[in-house]
Amino acid sequence: MSGRRLGVAVVTGRSMEPALHEGDRVLVLWGGRPRVGRMAVVRLPPSERGPRPISVKRVTRPAPGEPGAWWVERDNPTEGVDSWHVGGILESDVLGRVLGRLPHFTRRVWRA
């Protein structure tokens, strides 16, 4: 399990709605291999304006015609960027596998 570790990522944006929403926290196996049908944390290629933020996307299949790359998609067809815009994502740019969404906790103030 060398190079793999558990961590938490916070979702920004609406590209993975309805599965994930802005502010959701997800448990990530950093260094975990992608699995078709599961979500992953990926580094998208830069745009003409510069780097894009690290993103959560759904791994749908190996990228056609691109050995060593994965096809990733957003769940929300009206928001975000995915492989339909930028092509396959190199395996080295798949940073971790999302294991699940963490529950929301509310902060309570206790008064005596």
Rank of each mutant, 00 (worst) to 15 (best):
P64N: 08
V94L: 10
L102H: 07
V86C: 12
A69E: 13
V72C: 14
V72A: 03
W84T: 14
P53W: 00
G65I: 09
R97L: 15
L90A: 15
P62H: 13
G88Q: 04
P64T: 02
P64R: 12
E73T: 14
V81H: 02
V59F: 11
E91M: 01
E91L: 09
P103L: 13
E66T: 08
E91Y: 03
P67K: 06
E66V: 11
E79A: 15
V81C: 07
G87D: 02
V59T: 09
W71V: 05
L95E: 11
P67M: 09
P51C: 02
P77Y: 11
A63G: 11
W70P: 09
G65E: 09
I89M: 05
V72Q: 07
L99Y: 07
G100S: 10
D93L: 12
T60I: 14
P53I: 01
W70G: 06
E91W: 00
R97V: 11
L95I: 08
P77A: 12
P77W: 10
L99E: 11
S83C: 08
V81Y: 02
V81I: 15
P67F: 08
G50F: 11
D82L: 01
K57T: 04
P64W: 05
N76G: 02
G100N: 10
E66M: 11
W70R: 03
V94T: 02
P53S: 02
E91S: 14
R101L: 04
G87F: 01
R97T: 14
I54M: 14
H104F: 00
G68M: 06
V98W: 05
G80F: 04
L102M: 13
V86G: 05
P103H: 12
G65D: 10
R52Q: 13
R52H: 05
S83Q: 04
S92P: 06
R74Q: 15
S55V: 01
H85F: 05
L95F: 07
G88T: 08
P64Y: 05
H104L: 12
P64D: 10
G87E: 01
W71P: 03
S83P: 12
P67W: 05
E91T: 14
R58A: 07
T78G: 09
T78D: 14
A63E: 06
P103F: 11
G80Q: 03
L99T: 07
E73R: 15
L90C: 00
G87R: 00
V59K: 12
